[in-house]
Nucleic acid binder design. Structure first.
Length: 276
DNA sequence: AATTTCATCAACCGCCCGCTC
DNA sequence: GGAGCGGGCGGTTGATGAAAT
């Protein structure tokens, strides 16, 4: 059976976007809003596949995309989130303001994976690391030749002083499950308590902010922290083949219960050291 | 200076899921 | 219930340019 292609491939442009195409797409979305991607090629007069329009907008043209280096904090966050979520880049990106899933995926595949494996390619060993960063820094200062955009895609492993956090549209993974007793407290405190037999569900979720996940410098995780147990559980599930991205096993689908303390622990420096 | 090698990342591709009819 | 559509996701590819030879 199969699906029809998202649009006819005939007569469509492929490859790098031109400045004009970017402008057309941006103008259209500013006027009509996001979504309805299939309409865009027709209505905006773009010779692009709907998917291509969507991707271009989400990964590059969206105004809330943060340009600039991945900071050390962001890198830590990526590593930790990846440890917990696996290759679910969109979920990870949803917790890192201004970064796209594609960007994080690329960053992981080209840099972090090697770094964490400790098996850098020859080019990345020893002085090569510095050379590599030098190369990147050089690239930071010059635009790419792609005429479509002011491609300042710097990937140097340095912190940016002019770091301005812009929140992404964290459409996913923006809830945290809370322990039932905490939920109870929350409901009591907010006058929401109606049914004390509430089970874990969407109602049991609280919004959380990425700021809550950032590295805390002052806390220590006790070895017997629930956090480590959950990490172990996740690892076990992974080892049992339950971590396939799209089809997690029922075990990996089981709700993860994070208390505030655990969330605090999650982002701690020694989590990285211990796990990697 | 010319050529080769390699890293980077934007864009593409195919699959999956949720929704509607 | 199932077919089709629209949208989203993760894996992969290929153009590009810098570094190495």
């Amino acid at each position: 059976m199969g699906r029809s292609p998202c649009c006819s491939k005939e007569g469509l442009n492929k490859g790098a976007w031109t400045a004009l195409e970017d402008q057309i797409l941006t103008d259209y979305i500013k006027t009509h809003g996001e979504g309805k991607w299939r309409r865009i090629p027709k209505e905006a007069g773009l010779r692009r596949c709907a998917k291509s329009c969507r991707l271009r907008w989400l990964n590059y043209l969206r105004p809330d995309i943060k340009r600039g280096n991945i900071t050390q904090e962001e890198e830590d966050l990526i590593i930790r989130l990846h440890k917990l979520l696996g290759n679910r880049w969109s979920l990870i990106a949803g917790r890192i303001p201004g970064r796209t899933d594609n960007e994080i995926k690329n960053y992981w595949n080209t840099y972090l994976r090697k770094k964490l494996n400790g098996a850098e390619t020859p080019r990345l060993l020893g002085n090569k690391v510095d050379e590599n960063n030098k190369k990147k820094r050089k690239r930071d200062n010059s635009e790419k030749t792609n005429p479509s955009v002011n491609k300042t895609k710097p990937r140097a492993m340095v912190k940016s002083d002019s770091f301005a956090v812009i929140r992404t549209k964290a459409s996913k993974c923006n809830k945290v499950l809370v322990m039932p007793d905490q939920l109870l407290d929350h409901q009591i405190n907010h006058g929401l308590l109606e049914d004390t037999t509430t089970t874990i569900s969407e109602d049991s979720m609280l919004d959380f902010d990425v700021g809550e996940l950032l590295v805390s410098e002052n806390n220590d995780i006790p070895d017997d922290s629930d956090f480590w147990k959950i990490c172990q559980q996740l690892e076990d599930n992974t080892n049992n083949g339950g971590s396939k991205n799209r089809c997690p096993s029922s075990t990996s689908l089981a709700p993860l219960l994070f208390s505030d303390e655990m969330l605090k622990d999650w982002m701690r420096e020694d989590f990285f050291n211990r796990q990697c």
